[in-house]
């Protein structure tokens, strides 16, 4: 049976003055180092966010934290009497073993480094990956976190992002909205162009330059299809999209311009002749017969 008397145990064998001093030093390092590290991380985040952009704030915060944490671990290990060289060697071997065991995670870490170096997007950008669109919250070691517009958080592994097409909707300062506008065949296209130009000029989000472009897209099944290409500052793109189509509809109504709905013309073999109609009294005859 295990026989251990706590009070009669000779603690002086373990708690030697050197060990106690080392433990005190470790305590001091942790007590001062950790709060200082968190403070430094916060300062770096705030400073670089204010001076440059939230993306650089996030990056600098992570760099400060990982560097500081490594330094604290090294200092604590030294105080506890561990030699770093064998530890690093062992860590290398363990790392290789872990690397083989967790290839996905390693791939994500390396992909994360590529993402940080290549910068296809930054924190606060609006990106679309597959069917998911949202604001970039953070670019972490293993994944990128997005906030979708209906306020859900999506975690996308870095490796997937490296392999997939990513659309950055807010990379450039201005953005174009392509509006499809259909009008009836009877309408005068020159007049439609003037009306669309006027709508674009009066829209508060639409920029004068790059100049709005009106393109004749195609002869549709039931309509002439035009494209109205207008530009807005990237922050106002959605406002432009929401407002300009409504304004086009209102202006068309005001000007009596027809926006057609699909209709089908029926022909009876000869394109120009009207369909022959024969009036039949068959139903009445049938009804009379039933009465009799």
């Amino acid at each position: 049976m295990f026989d251990f008397n706590f009070f009669n145990f000779d603690w002086s064998q373990i708690a030697t003055p050197e060990r106690v001093a080392a433990l005190v030093k470790v305590g001091v390092i942790l007590l001062i180092g950790l709060p200082l590290l968190f403070l430094l991380r916060k300062w770096a985040r705030t400073f670089f966010t204010k001076k440059y952009a939230p993306h650089y704030g996030m990056l600098s915060g992570k760099i400060v934290f990982y560097l500081g944490f490594t330094m604290i671990v090294v200092m604590v290990m030294q105080q506890l009497g561990f030699s770093l060289a064998p530890l690093l060697g062992a860590a290398g071997i363990v790392g290789v073993a872990l690397g083989f065991a967790s290839q996905t995670s390693v791939s994500n870490v390396i992909s994360g480094l590529f993402l940080i170096a290549e910068q296809p997007f930054k924190v606060d950008d609006i990106i679309s990956i597959g069917n998911t669109s949202g604001v970039v919250l953070s670019i972490d070691v293993l994944s990128v976190k997005l906030r979708t517009f209906d306020n859900r958080m999506v975690r996308i592994p870095n490796e997937s992002i490296i392999k997939t097409e990513v659309i950055n909707n807010t990379r450039f300062p201005i953005r174009r909205f392509n509006a499809s506008v259909s009008v009836a065949y009877k309408e005068d296209i020159g007049r439609i162009r003037d009306v669309l130009k006027e709508v674009a000029e009066q829209n508060e989000h639409c920029l004068r330059e790059p100049e709005p472009i009106i393109l004749f897209d195609k002869f549709g099944t039931s309509s002439i299809d035009l494209l109205l290409l207008v530009w807005a500052p990237r922050e106002e793109w959605l406002d432009l999209k929401n407002s300009i189509l409504e304004e086009v509809k209102a202006k068309f109504d005001e000007e009596g311009i027809e926006i057609p709905f699909p209709h089908v013309s029926l022909y009876s073999g000869q394109a120009t002749s009207p369909i022959p109609i024969r009036l039949s009294d068959e139903s009445n005859s049938l009804a009379n017969a039933q009465k009799d």
Binding site: F172, P173, L207, E209, P210, P233
Partner: peptide, 17 residues
């Protein structure tokens, strides 16, 4: 006042027209 973009599509500045 309407606004316009002065510069190219990659960089420039928002101005009044």
């Amino acid at each position: 006042l309407s606004r316009t973009w002065f510069g190219d599509r990659l960089e420039g500045e928002l101005c009044y027209w």
